[in-house]
Design a protein around this nucleic acid. Structure first.
Ligand SMILES: [Mn+2]
Ligand SMILES: [Mn+2]
Ligand SMILES: [Zn+2]
Ligand SMILES: [Zn+2]
Lengths: 139, 139
DNA sequence: ACATCTTTGCAACAAAGTTGCAAAGTTTTT
DNA sequence: AAAAACTTTGCAACTTTGTTGCAAAGATGT
């Protein structure tokens, strides 16, 4: 069933193409966040690498997915659950990366605390990523 | 004066080479964090790209610098001010990236709050990066 | 000054990301 | 339902970023 993917695409004013349906579907079926490489592997040679780059970029712009920063040069992407729209994300939840299995979770119910910054600094966005061991990997 | 760089290298049990002195010196003179590219540009053709990769890696391992995650595929590195040692970093401060001038600051006096995770999740490390406008760029 | 151990630069590669453009596909209009 | 208008895709060519092995150069301790 890919109805849901089609509806999401239309809601965000995107034309419905095979690539977009399949990639969005893959996000819907995945537990955690995905890297570009994850998608490239999963899709095999079905789509060109360039198309995947462009699709992810479009999805981020339209507010369908959001990025999760990392220190390993592999940006992760995850579905926005809030009502994010083009140019206006508000995914202010904590992210968790498991050191064991590598899964990156959106902890939708754990919100990012307000940070008191030094004088002169104004916050615009806050990213909070915790790493450790996830519920599936605990001994 | 590069005394300070030499002392730091020795303290961390690294042999004192020209590359290491110059790169460490560059960190000491910089206000904010640096990317690999920043260093490569600054140093011109003085050092091989590979050497810079290896030097940064060594510095991280030895606890001289720490990484700052980002969602733009450009890891930033900054000096550890705490007494970090080989394999044991404890830089639990907030980082700030200015959307305007691009500078990344270590807010050494703003510490990362403890996050309450869902059952089964165990935290190991927490990265908190705020972006917005810095004190130098405010209107 | 010598022997030993470490670091560097080079070359050759692999992986990741970008851009322009024509062909194929989607949407809107007639 | 066809045609026109517009958008997306794949390809090719390229740039940038990151990795590895190895011999030459450099650092350290005696
Ligand atoms: Mn998320
Ligand atoms: Mn820092
Ligand atoms: Zn896990
Ligand atoms: Zn600034």
């Amino acid at each position: 069933m890919q109805e849901s993917a089609i509806i999401t695409l239309k809601k965000h004013e995107l034309s419905v193409t095979d690539t977009r349906k399949k990639i969005l579907q893959f996000f819907l079926e995945s537990a955690g966040a995905l890297t570009h490489a994850d998608i490239e592997q999963q899709m095999g040679a079905a789509f060109d690498r360039v198309t995947i780059y462009r699709t992810l970029q479009t999805f981020v712009e339209k507010g369908i997915i959001h990025t999760i920063p990392s220190a390993d040069n592999a940006i992760r992407y995850a579905l926005c659950k809030d009502n994010c729209a083009a140019g206006h994300h508000h995914d202010d939840h904590v992210h968790f990366m498991c050191d064991d299995c590598g899964t990156t979770y959106c902890l939708d119910h754990v919100s990012v605390p307000k940070i008191k910054l030094p004088k002169g600094f104004t916050a615009n966005q806050t990213d909070l990523v915790v790493s450790g061991v996830c519920h599936k990997c605990e001994a």
